[in-house]
Design a protein around this nucleic acid. Structure first.
Lengths: 135, 135
DNA sequence: TCATCTGTAATAAAAAATATTACAGTAAAG
DNA sequence: CTTTACTGTAATATTTTTTATTACAGATGA
């Protein structure tokens, strides 16, 4: 799993515990210990997926766009991955070999299967569930 | 998922279809289209996990150490990963932030949970099952 | 004793992830 | 209106990880 997933979960957990106060990218980046520009970039992506709202200008910042009970970890993962969960087969095997010729197709289909399994699991956990684990 | 998993599955599929003939690292690397030294390195690891046997010297090569029905994809993955399936939390968040302080613990526990889900799924698929998909 | 393999380490190159810098644009507050 | 404190985003640099390459010692059979 991608490091971006962890960052995204961290961001959304902060927002979920912020009680509707807007948080700045500086504050968020400080909690994660990453660069504010990187935080803004990930936030921008999460906003494209409808999970976050933002407000520009002085006293601007970020908040959740839905209640934490309505956001599942599957939503977060879907926003973060640009490829299927486990990546695609990416070798260029020998087409003259009977196994090489078919391996990518079969690996892709295996990955899709595993992907579905994980996704099903992630759908059962809401951001609210996850946030509750923090004091 | 790791590129090494795909390589490992490819190697074991080749061996499983080789009908007990020993295959050389050159042949295997040629099918995957990778460097023979890299293939030998992965094979060496798979041998440490009891999945492959090797024979040195002229007319040497590699073969399966168990029947393909006795090897599951979970065995292969376990051999290939050095860390849990989805990696460990690896940020160094701010310990002065209530969320930052606890995020790694909670992410690790989430990953362990997801890991178990995937592992359970992978255990249901044998190398024989996978190999059957090739003509 | 030569040819053909494996085993492994050291190194190099390529690719991917992450961090940094910079600055234009927006909104509130004086 | 002008200053201040933010977001939005692109360009670039750095670091880390992955993958490839080279090299050669050791094993085994012909």
């Amino acid at each position: 799993m991608n490091g971006r997933f962890q960052i995204a979960v961290h961001i959304l957990t902060l927002l979920s515990k912020a009680n509707c106060e807007l948080l700045s990218s500086d504050y968020i980046a400080g909690s994660i210990n990453i660069n504010p520009a990187l935080a803004r970039k990930e936030i921008s992506n999460l906003r494209n997926y409808g999970l976050i709202t933002s407000k520009e200008g002085k006293s601007g910042g970020y908040g959740l766009n839905k209640s934490s009970g309505q956001i599942t970890l599957a939503d977060i993962y879907q926003a973060v991955r640009n490829q299927p969960f486990l990546g695609l087969a990416k070798n260029s095997p020998n087409p003259d070999c009977p196994v090489g010729k078919q391996i990518n197709k079969n690996i892709d289909s295996l990955y899709a299967d595993l992907d579905k399994t994980l996704f099903t699991k992630l759908k059962t956990i809401t951001l609210a569930d996850f946030s509750e684990k923090f004091d």
